Amino acid sequence: MLQLMPLGDSITDGYNVPGGYRVNLFQKLAARGPGIDFVGSLSNGPAQLQDRDHEGRSGWRIDELAAQVNGWLDTYQPKTVLLMIGTNDILQNRDPANAPARLGALLDQMSTRRPDTQILVASLPPLADTAQNVWVERLNAALPALVETRADQGRKITFVNAGAALTTGDLADGVHPNAGGYSKLADAWYGALTGTPGALTP
């Protein structure tokens, strides 16, 4: 059984659309065969989502996730983590200029804690507010190099350009995806999982 942890904020939780991307992603993974176990201390989603566990913390920023993630990694020992975080740093105007540095530090923290865990880290979906979206674009632009630097050190970290799959037309409220947007995120995660060596190996 492969323990897979969806980790992030309300987009991982599935705000507006219960279960969010996790619904379609689990169905895609289940169609490949048994053996995937979503893990986390939270659980929610619709009836068609058979495995509802996750660690999507609505409203949380990078620093808040960093303060708690060691415990979750120790408890659930995920083989693979799907990480999407940073939107609330921008929405709350919490030093967005240094969000890439905080995210890099979080990746270091997680990969040091669990060196054998595959961390797939996603770019963020756009925000409808153009001023806020400038910070989204800056964070997304910084992510590939953040990941590459660490991958070159032998850390099991992979960049997933999930945010690029969405436009503001895929947002329900200017922030969170609508059903179509979550479906696109599920496709992006699935492509990354199946395309990253070892990401689906128990």
Rank of each mutant, 00 (worst) to 15 (best):
L106R: 11
M110K: 01
D187W: 01
K184V: 04
L107P: 04
V23W: 04
L82S: 05
P144I: 15
A122C: 03
M5P: 13
L143N: 10
D129C: 05
S183V: 10
R102P: 01
L120G: 01
I90Y: 04
T117G: 03
R61A: 05
F26C: 12
Q68S: 06
A97Q: 05
G104F: 14
A105T: 14
G45N: 11
G59T: 02
I90E: 09
W189R: 09
E64Y: 12
N93W: 15
P115R: 04
F26D: 10
L103T: 07
A199P: 02
E64Q: 15
A164R: 12
L185F: 07
P126I: 05
N24F: 12
P46H: 13
E137V: 10
T87F: 01
E137R: 15
G86H: 02
A186K: 11
T80P: 10
R52K: 14
S111M: 05
K184L: 08
L49E: 07
R22S: 00
T87V: 00
I157C: 11
Q77E: 12
P6K: 07
N44M: 05
A141Q: 10
R113F: 07
L42E: 08
L139C: 03
W72C: 08
R155Q: 07
M110A: 02
A199E: 00
D129I: 09
P126N: 10
I157G: 12
V160E: 10
V39E: 14
A151T: 08
T149A: 03
A141N: 06
L7T: 07
P100A: 00
P197C: 09
L25Y: 08
L83P: 04
N16M: 01
P144C: 11
N93G: 10
P125N: 15
M1L: 11
K184W: 03
A199D: 00
W60L: 04
P197N: 10
N70F: 07
F159W: 15
K79P: 09
M84D: 00
L127E: 13
L124D: 06
V134H: 11
F26S: 11
R113T: 04
R138K: 14
I157H: 07
D95T: 09
F38W: 15
T130M: 08
G71N: 06
G86F: 00
Y76I: 04
D116T: 11
A99E: 03
R94M: 15
A188F: 09
P125V: 14
R61W: 07
P125D: 13
A30N: 13
P125I: 11
D170E: 06
G8T: 03
R138F: 05
L200K: 04
R32L: 15
Y21C: 02
W189M: 09
I62Q: 12
D108P: 08
L171T: 00
K79E: 11
L2H: 05
G180N: 12
T117F: 01
M1G: 11
L107C: 04
V81T: 10
N98Y: 00
E137Q: 15
P115L: 06
A192L: 12
S43W: 10
I119G: 05
E64H: 10
P115D: 03
V121T: 14
V136S: 12
N133F: 08
A151W: 04
